[in-house]
Deep mutational scan, measured.
Amino acid sequence: MTEYKLVVVGAGGVGKSALTIQLIQNHFVDEYDPTIEDSYRKQVVIDGETCLLDILDTAGQEEYSAMRDQYMRTGEGFLCVFAINNTKSFEDIHHYREQIKRVKDSEDVPMVLVGNKCDLPSRTVDTKQAQDLARSYGIPFIETSAKTRQGVDDAFYTLVREIRKHKEKMSKDGKKKKKKSKTKCVIM
């Protein structure tokens, strides 16, 4: 069974824990209790493949930012979460993405942009803004509501699919490099 290491990042209060708990335990946590770091595991079937999701729910508070490099190193894919009623959390996505790329030393890291709290009427981040940002990053965008469960499975499952595509691409690139290195030079 394939294991996928997913990391949920975003500013404090955007609903990272609520999304994760909704996926794992099928219930909505409405009281806000700032996370330092929590880890969850769940076995699911995605596109006919049974897999184990190892999900790291991270601290959004700035005082825990020193811990970010460590979990970013171990993560295979990242859910970059903002709240649709919090423009600052949307603007912060850029910083999370840049930090992930720096730590992973790669421009090509599996990510999904997630606009959470889409059940709320007080939207300050337009869907088109988020779609445009995701398009500019070359990553999928999904709106979710941890409260109603809308888009929750889709967000995590899409990230797994992005990781699969990335692994497939990397193995193809690896095979191309191996083929090239088999060419021999004969000096007579």
Rank of each mutant, 00 (worst) to 15 (best):
C80Y: 12
E76K: 07
T50G: 08
A11N: 04
L53I: 12
T2H: 10
M188Q: 15
R164E: 13
H94L: 12
M188P: 15
F141T: 05
K176E: 13
K172C: 08
A59N: 12
P110Q: 01
G12A: 08
K178L: 13
D126E: 12
N86Y: 03
T50R: 07
T87P: 15
E107R: 05
T127M: 14
T87Q: 14
Q25D: 05
T74V: 06
Y137T: 05
K88D: 05
T58Y: 09
Q150I: 14
L52V: 13
F156I: 15
T87I: 09
R149I: 11
C185E: 15
T158H: 05
P121Y: 11
L120Y: 05
K16V: 04
K167Q: 10
V109W: 03
Q129V: 13
I46A: 07
L6Q: 00
Q43E: 10
D154N: 12
T124W: 07
S65D: 12
K177H: 14
G138H: 07
K117G: 13
K42C: 06
K178T: 11
I21M: 14
T124E: 14
Q131K: 11
T127V: 13
K179S: 14
T144P: 01
F28W: 07
A66W: 04
Y157A: 15
V44H: 12
M72F: 12
V45C: 11
A66Y: 09
E76Y: 11
Q22K: 09
Y137K: 06
D69V: 01
H27T: 08
D105N: 15
F156P: 00
D92H: 09
F141S: 04
V7W: 07
F156H: 01
A11I: 13
H94P: 02
D30I: 08
Y157G: 13
D119E: 10
D126Y: 08
L56D: 13
T58W: 05
A155R: 00
E168V: 06
P110F: 02
L56R: 14
S17V: 00
S171L: 13
K169H: 08
L52S: 14
T74P: 05
I55M: 09
F82C: 13
L120T: 11
E76C: 15
K179Q: 13
I55C: 09
I46H: 06
R97Q: 12
N116W: 00
N86H: 07
Q99W: 15
I84L: 15
R123L: 10
S136I: 09
K169W: 13
V152M: 12
I21S: 15
F90T: 09
S17G: 08
F156Q: 01
V160Q: 02
K165Q: 08
I36A: 09
P121V: 10
Y96Q: 02
K178Y: 09
T74R: 09
K42Q: 08
A83K: 03
R135A: 15
F28L: 12
V125E: 13
D69N: 04
K175S: 15
I21E: 15
I46V: 11
D47I: 01
L113A: 02
Y137L: 14
D47K: 03
R68A: 12
F156M: 12
S106F: 11
L23Q: 13
